[in-house]
Amino acid sequence: MSIQIYILSKLIEGNNYPYELKRQLSEPIPFDEYTGLTESKLYYHFDSLAKKGLIEVVEIVKEEHRPDKQVFAITEKGRKELPEKIYKLFENTTEINEMMVGLVNLKHVDRDRIVDTLEEKLQKHKEKWELIRESASQLKVDDSKQGLVDFISDYSLSKAKQTEQWLEELIERIQNHKM
């Protein structure tokens, strides 16, 4: 879904072709390598979006000794679908790093709706970890495994606290238009 949001958000800014979007994603920081985005994956998503009627070919550029370039534009249906894809991204992700393409495209959505989604996610996270803490306190472990249990517990709780802090920070920044 993130790749499709990226494509639609770039095409809403202007017509473009797949290779150029991949080049933009790789310079100056090679985000394409970090995300594992290959040309074949990118072309697959362009094709998928075109089949759904969200984008369309508006021009074919012919160059001597080079393959033809298909230039794409976003359709009206694609303009309407972009915010819905962003909302779904926030609803379905569990980690903040999975939300990045949505965060970059907050201008296309209702920020209050995103904040509501994140607050709900934060509340569920807190409830889940409170239940885990309560359950862990009732756990009986023999002395030979106590060190391992303590390590796993400390690590997990530390990670949960960090997630909680960053969700709170993210909510605040979106509410205060710091992003």
Results as ranks from 00 to 15, higher is better:
residue 123 Q to G: 10
residue 72 F to P: 06
residue 92 N to R: 10
residue 81 E to R: 04
residue 148 L to G: 07
residue 166 W to I: 01
residue 160 A to E: 04
residue 69 K to Y: 09
residue 8 L to N: 00
residue 165 Q to S: 09
residue 61 V to F: 00
residue 113 R to H: 01
residue 99 M to Y: 11
residue 166 W to Q: 06
residue 67 P to I: 02
residue 151 F to L: 05
residue 31 F to D: 09
residue 78 G to P: 04
residue 97 N to P: 04
residue 148 L to S: 11
residue 9 S to K: 06
residue 101 V to E: 14
residue 165 Q to D: 15
residue 121 K to H: 11
residue 73 A to M: 14
residue 142 D to G: 05
residue 172 E to N: 11
residue 132 I to Y: 00
residue 149 V to I: 13
residue 71 V to A: 06
residue 111 R to Q: 00
residue 141 V to R: 00
residue 135 S to Q: 09
residue 114 I to M: 03
residue 87 Y to D: 09
residue 66 R to N: 02
residue 177 H to F: 10
residue 19 Y to M: 15
residue 6 Y to Q: 00
residue 22 K to C: 05
residue 107 K to P: 03
residue 118 L to Y: 01
residue 73 A to E: 15
residue 114 I to V: 13
residue 76 E to F: 12
residue 51 K to Q: 07
residue 129 W to F: 03
residue 24 Q to P: 06
residue 174 I to D: 06
residue 119 E to C: 00
residue 143 D to H: 11
residue 133 R to K: 14
residue 161 K to V: 11
residue 111 R to I: 01
residue 135 S to M: 02
residue 32 D to H: 10
residue 11 L to K: 02
residue 167 L to S: 09
residue 80 K to G: 04
residue 113 R to A: 06
residue 118 L to C: 05
residue 131 L to V: 08
residue 57 V to K: 00
residue 59 E to I: 08
residue 65 H to M: 06
residue 6 Y to E: 13
residue 49 L to P: 02
residue 90 F to I: 09
residue 122 L to K: 07
residue 57 V to T: 09
residue 85 K to N: 00
residue 1 M to V: 11
residue 58 V to I: 14
residue 45 H to Y: 15
residue 111 R to D: 04
residue 31 F to N: 10
residue 51 K to E: 13
residue 105 N to R: 14
residue 177 H to S: 11
residue 112 D to K: 06
residue 130 E to Q: 14
residue 169 E to H: 12
residue 8 L to D: 03
residue 97 N to F: 09
residue 169 E to P: 07
residue 159 K to M: 10
residue 76 E to R: 08
residue 26 S to H: 09
residue 172 E to V: 09
residue 48 S to V: 12
residue 39 E to A: 00
residue 39 E to H: 08
